[in-house]
Write a protein that binds this DNA or RNA. Structure first.
Length: 948
RNA sequence: GCAGGGGUGGCAGAGUUUGGCCAAAUGCGGCGGGCUUAGGACCCGUUUCCUUUGUGGAUGCGAGAGUUCAAAUCUCUCCCCCUGCACCA
């Protein structure tokens, strides 16, 4: 078995010493590829490497194809996660302490240092780099940077200056989950149990109160049901309030609790509290038809959701219907439902939605949906909820409006029309609701929605900008092709992006220093920074003025002025510009599917907003994640394997091969110890084969030698296109797994030509280089070479050496062996006697003619005609034969071997056949054979007769 | 709800663009056998059902319907699963 760790250390040192991955501007064609930023709030595990394997293979492959390759990496540390870790560490959170001690091996006395977020980030960055080196990645480490470095911040400030200049930074209101105790925006990480706030916008409709200069506000998702309004519901025993909203003259009735929640979205001034009993005495007027409706108590109304008041549409809302029926039962006079949507109740729901009974009251859909479920107005709230869902689903998908003015419209159409109408008339207010309320901040305070004023946005909705991004995408190569559609949709979908954050690490927002730049927005054009970071590493950050970046990235201004203004040397500025312009014309971004609706469109938009078209994004590779033995990796499952541990246990190359060969580009790969063991053994098999090459001789080439050359060249020809589109799995099926099988077949067939085997192994070793670089170097050198495999050329296929005829002949042999074994087993089982000999009976040449006729004509009739005309053929036998073949006409292939050819081939391979089949072999022709089975023989498929 | 991806044999996963050579590649697992002191190594066979000295038959690729001489593949309807939806990176 190969000692993987030993050869890893050896070759990693050799590559580093030779500096072969440090890329400089040169005359060769450039190629730049990079993987997604890893996030630095913990240690690397094997999963992190999956996303770097694809760009790594591409980088190594492209070098072999003659490109000058830049493969850099940087680290992401902006945003809140690192602060989160620090916070937990400070409070000595048990889990975090455990992680630091047991997993990261950091002694407790050092914890204090890690309470500084920068220290923590840098510590892990250092660890990451060590791991990357141990993984043998062909990265140019001189270009490493972290997104919280001052020089990077200068770059980001420049970027935002450009966005501002172009008018892409705008300000506006933005709803966000908020904790008023800490006075902070809260996201998933800040909320108890890690739940993300779900914010939805609703419309609050104003209902004039008869005889008062005041309105009742009802929040609703379905304004289109307004024509079906019969009354207003409030909650019994709740306190209501008369308010002025945004300094209005008129008053608004909402619940006291709602006033508390909504005051962060609008200015609310409570004039007086109102008892619910007073509310019940009011009469409200519908804004669209002027109908007067009563206010009634609804058992299901929640005072702290929406406005604490809802409109009632009993014909279509099961809750409303149930509430009215319950009131009726208590002798209260209630209005009759008004049906406004026509729908075939239950027709589209299918069995899965547990529709059980036929509805009777189809004139009241709300009741009908309860009937379907065998429920009624007294049923539990869960059942009413289910009926509501069914009603909503079917009515909005298949229903047609019957209400006057909206006849025939679908519900969504009507919703939009009525919503727009109400807003235009000033009869509705937009409000935001926390869909999954109540949520609590980790500090214990309830989370509410705060409508933040003057939030900064990047306006990705800008039509001209979007047009440019679409153009950029259309000219970009997206791999795999099937993900292109999703990227397209993401570009179309991206709209306003809130870009200023109240907390987190990173770069301060240049136009309001109280805020930080949001952490995805500072990682969009970062790859451009790779092209210069090694040149400005020691530059004073303050010197990196906009003029410098303008000149380097946009060729604005002249070098002498820039040098004077910034104090950066002429030489450095010149080199930076050259480097950017050289590398940035071909970039391939390898990233994960989860970035399709976030990072990827932003990456595209920012490139076309800032750079000249020449430097827009060129390539995108979307690669899947890593599963652990078929399961998702997660802390809770305890199946996260630290990378160092994996490397020392299994070796780098087997891990890399497992990652690259166990899945296609887009799908998740599976880390599997069984698969890794298989890889280790196969690599060792190749090594053994290489060490044994010298024991072989170098005689004249035989059929099996041509066969191996044919397989090799076909392999090169077929695997190369897969490498070009990053389908490493398909490529390495051929390069790796099939090579083992071919070598084994070659040796079993008696192949023993040292030169042939060496040619074969040399090419295979080189093709293994991108994926298993350490083994490839080892093999390459063991084969007597002194150059680096990493610097060699990718093998070229020699089409002349591809020999279909020889391959078919070998296939024939294997088929014969298989058939013979099967026949022997069968016969022995049946007769109880041992088979002594197998007769292989070769078909006559006239059968070949018929095969060829059928293969070209694909029509049995025509062939019968020809047989009739023929003088040479035995007409009866020929017709029988055609009949047999015609059953599977499509399988009949042209035959290019004569009977004599076949006999010669089988004779040559007789020894192999005898050994494989395990008994004596006799070869005879159909016409001379005395066997009954002789006439069953077919070209390339001889008849077999077992002799006892 | 909206958007994207998907549903294939015990499992994983090809095949779908361009319908036929597809009982369906490949890998894993199971079973049987060989090699062996032994084997988790390797080799051979088998792994829907029936039948069997076969270029045999039936059923079959989420469900249903349709187009066709012919459907995993095309059309329509339905069901289900995964992912994302913005102070998360």
């Amino acid at each position: 078995m190969i000692n993987f760790n030993e050869i890893e250390a050896k070759w990693q040192k050799a590559w580093t010493d030779a500096k072969i991955f440090e890329s400089e501007v040169s005359d060769s064609k450039s190629f730049m590829v990079f993987g997604a930023f890893p996030y630095t709030n913990g240690l690397l595990h094997v999963g992190h490497f999956k996303s770097y394997v694809t760009p790594e293979i591409l980088a190594r492959y492209k070098r072999m194809r003659g490109f000058n390759v830049l493969f850099p990496m940087g680290f992401h540390a902006t945003g809140t996660p690192i602060l989160g870790v620090v916070k937990k560490l400070k409070s000595r959170d048990r889990e975090t302490v455990e992680e630091f001690t047991n997993k990261y091996h950091i002694p407790e006395q050092e914890f204090q240092k890690f309470e500084d977020p920068l220290y923590l980030a840098n510590y892990f960055v250092g660890k990451f780099e060590e791991s990357y080196k141990k993984f043998g990645l062909s990265l140019d480490f001189r270009r490493r940077f972290v997104t919280i470095e001052p020089i990077f911040s200068k770059f980001i400030e420049w970027q935002f200056g450009k966005l501002k200049e172009n008018g892409y930074l705008i300000q506006g209101k933005h709803p966000v989950g908020w904790c008023f105790n800490e006075n902070n925006a809260v996201g998933m990480d800040d909320i108890l149990h890690g739940i993300a706030p779900e914010i939805e916008d609703q419309i609050a409709i104003k209902f004039k109160v008869d005889g008062e200069d005041a309105y009742v506000l009802c929040a609703t998702y379905r304004p289109e049901t307004l024509p079906g309004l019969t009354n207003i519901f409030i909650k019994e025993n709740a306190t209501y309030a008369l308010c002025k909203i945004n300094g209005s003259k008129e008053g608004y009735y909402i619940s006291r609790a709602a006033a508390e929640i909504l005051k962060h979205q609008m200015k609310i001034e409570v004039v007086k509290d109102v008892d619910y009993k007073d509310m019940l005495n009011k009469v409200c007027i519908s804004p669209i038809d002027g109908r007067k409706v009563p206010v009634l108590p609804g058992f299901f109304v929640k005072e702290n959701i929406g406005t604490g008041i809802v409109m009632s549409v009993p014909a279509h809302a099961p809750f409303d219907y149930a509430a009215l029926e319950r009131l009726k039962q208590n002798g209260i006079k209630v209005p009759e439902p008004i049906k406004i949507i026509d729908v075939e109740i239950g027709s589209k729901l299918g069995n899965a939605n547990s529709a059980q009974s036929k509805p009777v009251h189809i004139d009241i859909p709300a009741l009908a949906y309860l009937e379907i479920l065998n429920k009624d107005f007294n049923s539990a709230e869960d059942d009413l909820e289910l009926a509501t869902k069914l009603a909503y689903k079917e009515e909005s998908h298949y229903g047609k409006m019957t209400a006057k003015g909206y006849e025939g419209m679908s519900e969504p159409e009507a919703r939009e029309k009525i919503g727009k109408l109400l807003e235009e008339q000033g009869n509705a207010i937009k409000i935001y609701v926390l869909q999954n309320a109540p949520l609590f901040c980790r500090c214990g305070t309830e989370v509410v929605i705060n409508l933040v004023d003057n939030q900064w946005f990047i306006n990705y909705g800008d039509e001209n900008w979007k047009k440019a991004a679409r153009e950029e995408l259309s000219e970009m190569l997206v791999l795999p092709g099937k993900s292109a559609k999703a990227v397209q949709d993401a570009v179309d979908w991206l709209n306003l992006r809130a870009v200023a954050r109240s907390q987190g690490l990173g770069t301060r927002f240049p136009y309001d220093k109280n805020y930080m730049i949001e952490s995805l927005s500072d990682s969009t054009i970062y790859p451009a920074f790779y092209t210069i970071v090694n040149l400005i590493r020691d530059t004073e950050p303050d010197r990196l003025k906009p003029e410098f970046f303008d000149y380097v990235f946009l060729a604005k201004g002249n070098i002498d002025d820039v040098s004077k203004v910034t104090g950066i040397s002429y030489e450095t500025i010149k080199k930076c510009k050259e480097s950017f312009e050289y590398w940035y014309t071909t970039t391939t971004n390898c990233t994960a599917p989860e970035h399709i609706f976030s990072h990827i469109p932003m990456y595209l938009f920012n490139h076309c907003a800032i750079f000249d078209k020449k430097y827009w994004a060129k390539g995108l590779g979307i690669n899947g994640m890593l599963l652990m033995e078929g399961e998702k990796m997660s802390k809770s499952l305890g199946n996260v394997v630290p990378i160092e541990e994996a490397i020392s246990k299994y070796g780098v190359d087997p891990i890399r091969m497992n990652m690259a060969a166990s899945s296609e580009l887009y799908s998740d790969a599976n880390f599997s110890v069984a698969a890794i063991n298989g890889i280790q053994e196969r690599l060792s098999y190749i090594q053994d084969a290489i060490l044994n090459v010298d024991t072989l001789d170098a005689n004249e080439l035989k059929q099996i030698d041509y066969w191996l050359y044919s397989k090799l060249n076909k392999k090169i020809r077929d695997a190369t296109p897969f490498m070009d589109i990053m389908e490493t799995r398909d490529a390495y099926m051929q390069i790796f797994y099939n090579s083992i099988l071919e070598l084994k077949h070659y040796l079993a067939r008696g192949g023993k030509n040292g030169i042939v085997v060496k040619d074969y192994l040399s090419a295979v070793s080189l093709m293994l280089q991108p994926i298993a670089p350490h083994c490839a170097e080892e093999f390459w050198h063991a084969l007597g070479n002194t150059t680096f495999a990493a610097k060699e050329k990718w093998p070229e296929a020699n089409e002349q050496m591809i020999n279909e005829k020889v391959e078919k002949q070998e296939d024939m042999l294997d088929a014969i062996i298989g058939d013979a074994k099967q026949a022997i087993a069968l016969m022995e089982r049946k007769s109880g006697k041992k088979v002594k000999e197998i007769k292989i009976i070769i078909a006559e040449n006239w059968k070949r003619d018929i095969n060829n006729m059928l293969a070209t004509e694909k029509n049995a009739g025509k062939v019968y005609e020809k047989i009739k005309e023929s003088n040479e053929l035995d007409k009866q036998a020929a017709a029988d034969y055609v009949r047999r073949l015609s059953k599977k006409l499509n399988e009949v292939k042209e035959v290019n071997l004569t009977q004599e050819d076949e006999i010669t081939i089988l004779d040559e391979a007789k020894e192999y056949l005898q050994k494989s089949i395990g008994c004596k072999i006799v070869i005879e022709s159909e016409s001379t054979s005395k066997s009954e089975r002789a006439k069953r023989s077919m070209p390339m498929k001889p008849s077999l007769d077992a002799i006892f």
